[in-house]
């Protein structure tokens, strides 16, 4: 049953400073409301527990895609549609564009934001695996100042993250170090679109002299958080992609992830498919078929 709207409060700060003041003055009392593509679903289902929000939708400071020689920084309010249409992202961070295309339908893509996707902290989210594989860094801001944190250290447990009550996620910085990498992204769901992932895989790699010079792998829907699989990466680094390496990597990945049975799939299926996708990733990057 839909939640009762009069129980809720939504404020609209006039600028970023006022938004940060909300957070600073009553820590934990106010939470940001961006595109609403997750929060409105909870509201409709009567499951939105928090009742006081402030809209960040109009905060120009959190919008836009900024490009420097070293990095591309997405404002936290960058929508999936904006991601899809950005030519630099298409060229250098294609997995992010594919993830954006595979998230929800057109209406959701127009409204849903990358920042919202990160702080919603769903382990089944589709953009975070790509962000992890691209070594994204998060920019956090409070009235006390700004700080940065590698994205791979951000999520600490199911719906848990290193975000203080007085902090706002403002941007996502992507280092422009992807040009020599091969990119591989797969989302597996019950149907071809608009289905929450059973398994989501994002991987980049660089093969030099037939061995793995660089590799970064992240998966969704296989653990309480979206997972960067560093142990599996370690097994691969410096190795040539042969059957022995693939087999060792599969074993490492199966140890590293911890999927569960739920309404959408089984742990068994997820383990098997995660390993299959890893193998396909390795063969694809080895054989040079770019996706």
């Amino acid at each position: 049953m839909r939640a009762y709207l009069p129980d809720y409060e939504l404020r609209v700060p006039k600028d970023l400073e006022e938004a940060l003041a909300f957070l600073a003055n009553e820590p934990g009392m106010w939470k940001p409301f961006a595109g609403g593509t997750d929060l409105m679903v909870l509201l409709e289902a009567g499951k939105l527990e928090h009742t006081k929000f402030f809209s960040v939708w109009n905060l120009a400071e959190l919008r836009g895609i900024e490009v420097t020689d070293e990095s591309v920084t997405l404002g936290a309010l960058t929508t999936y549609t904006e991601v899809r249409r950005n030519s630099i992202l298409q060229e250098e961070f294609p997995m992010l564009c594919v993830a954006a295309r595979e998230t929800g339908g057109i209406a959701i893509q127009n409204r849903g934001t990358i920042g919202g996707n990160i702080v919603n902290a769903s382990p089944a989210a589709d953009s975070p695996p790509a962000l992890l594989a691209y070594d994204a860094e998060l920019e956090l801001l409070s009235s006390k100042g700004a700080r940065k944190i590698p994205y791979k250290d951000f999520h600490t447990g199911y719906k848990q993250m290193k975000l203080r009550d007085d902090e706002l996620l403002t941007g996502i910085r992507l280092p422009r170090t992807t040009k020599s990498l091969r990119h591989y992204y797969r989302k597996v769901g019950t149907r071809k679109a608009q289905a929450i992932s059973k398994v989501c895989f994002a991987g980049v790699a660089k093969i030099e002299d037939e061995s793995v010079a660089d590799v970064r792998i992240a998966l969704g829907s296989v653990a309480p958080i979206v997972l960067r699989c560093e142990k599996t990466e370690a097994v691969l680094r410096g190795k040539s992609v042969d059957e022995r390496t693939i087999s060792a990597a599969r074993a490492a990945l199966i140890n590293e992830i911890a999927p569960i049975d739920d309404i959408r799939s089984t742990a068994k299926y997820r383990l098997r498919v995660a390993a299959n996708l890893l193998e396909d990733f390795l063969k694809t990057v080895r054989d040079g078929e770019l996706n």
């Binding site: 679903v41 289902a45 019950t190 149907r191 071809k192 679109a193 608009q194 289905a195 929450i196 309404i263």
Partner: peptide
């Protein structure tokens, strides 16, 4: 019923 929604009761979408 545990999937009483169009998000979890999966009808085919256009791409299917």
């Amino acid at each position: 019923i545990v999937n009483p929604s169009l998000a979890e009761y999966h009808l085919p979408v256009n791409l299917d």
